[in-house]
């Protein structure tokens, strides 16, 4: 098979993130849009920006802030395979990451203030090369079991 010039596109990982991460991302977008709105308001007040342009900028930002999280959610995926952890994210900038179990040094779960508000966790995997992978938006149980599972197989060849 190796000699064939054509190759099927890489299969995406199977698991998607916890749906609540959408809320988290929307909250983050809303905060960013609010900041942009304040900035535009100040610029309009100081006569740097005509009112219609300021409104347009805020509307575009709000539109993007509303539309990007669902797309991002659809494109984020991870999977624990037989020998490795496989993640895939991004549409514009695609990144696929592969971490073999026997290279994992340690695994940690993290929770920032926003994560806590939505009771979500981030899972971070380290290899000897440093931080190798991160999965955001995992529920309590999922994050805990993933951490345990990956810690158990860390340094071994397969599940």
């Amino acid at each position: 098979m190796r000699g064939l010039p054509r190759h099927d596109p890489l299969k995406a990982p199977a698991q998607s993130l916890d749906r609540r991460v959408l809320g988290l991302w929307w909250a983050a977008s809303a905060a960013l849009v609010a900041l942009i709105a304040i900035g535009c308001g100040v610029a309009w007040f100081l006569d740097f920006l005509p009112a219609p342009l300021a409104v347009l900028i805020v509307l575009v930002a709000a539109g993007l802030g509303g539309l990007v999280p669902p797309v991002r959610y659809r494109l984020w995926a991870y999977e624990i395979r037989a020998h490795d952890l496989y993640t895939s994210r991004g549409g514009l900038f695609v990144t696929r990451t592969l971490i073999p179990f026997d290279r994992i040094q340690f695994v940690e779960t993290r929770q920032g203030p926003l994560d806590r508000a939505f009771s979500l966790h981030q899972l971070v995997v380290y290899t000897a090369a440093g931080q190798a992978g991160r999965i955001p938006g995992l529920g309590d149980e999922e994050a805990g079991s993933l951490r345990e599972e990956l810690s158990r197989v860390a340094g071994t060849v397969s599940v």
Binding site: V94, T95, R96, P100, T127
Partner: peptide
Amino acid sequence: QDLRLTISPLQRAGDLATLVLGIP
């Protein structure tokens, strides 16, 4: 240690990709 594949918008236009090999 780990392996990454990244595709930026301009790379997609040219059907290109970057392979990143993680070593210590």
